[in-house]
């Protein structure tokens, strides 16, 4: 459903992505791994429209989305959970969730969607009147992911969901991602915690220094000796 061809993205004069090509099929969970600065975040932000590519194409459900402003891309069904969540600090948990269904289409489904979210994440129901700033790291990440689901997206972009979280919390976050995956969402996730991420994925890409170095199904990554040594630490 998402097709990226030969994407080139620049920060001013500095090139961050070189001829990146990537695919996500319906219902798939695809992960992108690689070291810091490989351009993984840049890739996600370009897909969601926060950045503009200099050349290359991004097609979603048959329509070109590269160059569109971010709010239009959200309308088309792509939701991004940026690294750190980007919650609205002075809004309550409930208000953060509500903004998630800002889009006209999602507003109609607001009440039932909210119910579903509370079932998946009961702790958000408990804390619904709490200001987002006062939540713990794990709760914030949960809220960020929940918020992205409020717009009933077709594709979810997850940027380093485990970043800055304690190991036990990381496990819980990945549990949620698994649950979301089970519901049928297509997920494109960028992660540094390669081992956990790989176990969730259907396919994976390896990015280094702004280029795609390897693409393959989960098993091929798990079996690859270079990846095992460099990223899984075996």
């Amino acid at each position: 459903m998402l097709e990226i061809k030969s994407l080139n993205v620049y920060y001013g004069e500095f090139q961050a992505l070189f001829e990146v090509s990537l695919r996500v099929l319906e219902g798939e969970t695809v992960i992108t791994v690689g070291p810091n600065g490989a351009g993984k975040s840049t890739l996600l932000k370009t897909i969601s429209g926060l950045f503009r590519p200099r050349s290359g194409t991004i097609t979603f459900l048959g329509k070109r989305i590269d160059g569109l402003p971010a709010h239009r891309i959200v309308e088309m069904g792509i939701a991004q959970v940026p690294e750190g969540g980007w919650l609205f600090p002075q809004l309550t948990v409930l208000e953060n969730l509500k903004v998630g269904s800002y889009l006209k289409g999602s507003r109609r489904e607001y009440a039932p969607t909210l119910k579903d979210i509370y079932r998946l994440f009961p702790i958000l129901d408990e804390r619904k009147k709490q200001v987002a700033d006062t939540l713990s790291g794990g709760e914030r990440q949960m809220l960020a992911i929940a918020r992205s689901l409020m717009s009933r997206p077709k594709l979810i972009l997850l940027d380093e969901p485990s970043s800055g979280l304690a190991p036990r919390v990381v496990s819980r976050v990945f549990e949620f991602v698994k649950q979301i995956k089970a519901t049928g969402y297509a997920i494109l996730m960028v992660e540094q915690n390669v081992r956990k991420a790989l176990h969730l994925s259907d396919r994976a890409y390896l990015m280094e220094s702004g280029r795609v170095h390897k693409e393959g199904v989960r098993q091929s990554f798990l079996d690859d000796p270079y990846i095992k040594k460099a990223y899984i630490g075996l």
Partner: peptide, 24 residues
């Protein structure tokens, strides 16, 4: 109101608001 919420969200984090489908 939703519009009021959108305004408050934009004030707090404009890029995040974009990701919610809000047109800054």
């Amino acid at each position: 109101t939703y519009l009021g919420l959108a305004i408050r969200s934009t004030a707090q984090n404009v890029d995040s608001a974009r990701l919610m489908g809000i047109n800054p």
